[in-house]
Computed example of a mutant assay.
Amino acid sequence: MLALPALAVMPAVADDTVRLNLREGVTEISQRVYDLHMTIFYICCVIGVIVFGTMFWSMFRHRKSKGRTPAKFHESIRVEVLWTIIPFLILAGMAYPATTTLIHMENTDDADVTVQVTASQWKWHYKYFDHDVEYYSLLATPDQQIHNKLPKGENYLLEVDRPLVVPTGKKIRFLITSDDVIHSWWVPDFAVKKDANPGFINEAWTIVDKPGIYRGQCAELCGNNHGFMPVVVIAKEPAEYEKWITNMEVKQRKAREREQELLSMEMSKDELMKMGEKVYNGICAACHQPNGQGVQGVFPALAGSPVTTGKDSITKHIDTVVHGVKGTAMQAFGTQLSMQELAAVITYERNAWGNDTGDLVQAADVNKVMNP
Rank of each mutant, 00 (worst) to 15 (best):
Q217W: 14
N247R: 05
D130R: 05
G199M: 08
P211T: 11
G223C: 02
R256A: 00
V279R: 04
S30M: 13
F200A: 00
A303G: 05
T27A: 12
L2A: 02
F56M: 05
W205P: 00
Y42L: 01
H74S: 10
F200Y: 06
D161K: 15
V192P: 04
N281I: 11
V192N: 03
I86Y: 02
E28R: 11
Q362L: 05
L342R: 08
D312T: 13
N355K: 06
K170E: 15
G282F: 13
Y135H: 09
P211F: 07
R63A: 13
V166K: 10
V9C: 03
Q145T: 13
P142F: 08
Q260H: 11
A285G: 09
T206P: 03
A332L: 11
P5S: 04
S184Y: 00
I77T: 14
K149W: 14
V232N: 01
A332V: 07
A191G: 06
L91V: 13
V298T: 10
S76N: 12
V133H: 07
I318S: 10
I245T: 11
E261W: 12
D179P: 00
M248Q: 15
K311H: 09
K311Y: 05
I43K: 08
S76V: 04
Y96P: 04
I29G: 04
A285V: 11
G358H: 04
D35M: 02
A98T: 09
K123L: 05
D270H: 14
M267N: 11
P372K: 09
K254F: 15
I234H: 14
W122H: 14
Y280H: 08
L36A: 10
V232I: 03
V345C: 02
M370L: 13
G276L: 01
Y156C: 05
I103K: 13
K170Y: 14
T100Y: 06
A344I: 12
E159N: 06
L7V: 03
I50R: 02
V51D: 06
D112I: 05
I346P: 00
D112F: 10
A239N: 06
Q116P: 01
P372S: 04
K66M: 06
P70G: 07
V187P: 01
A3H: 01
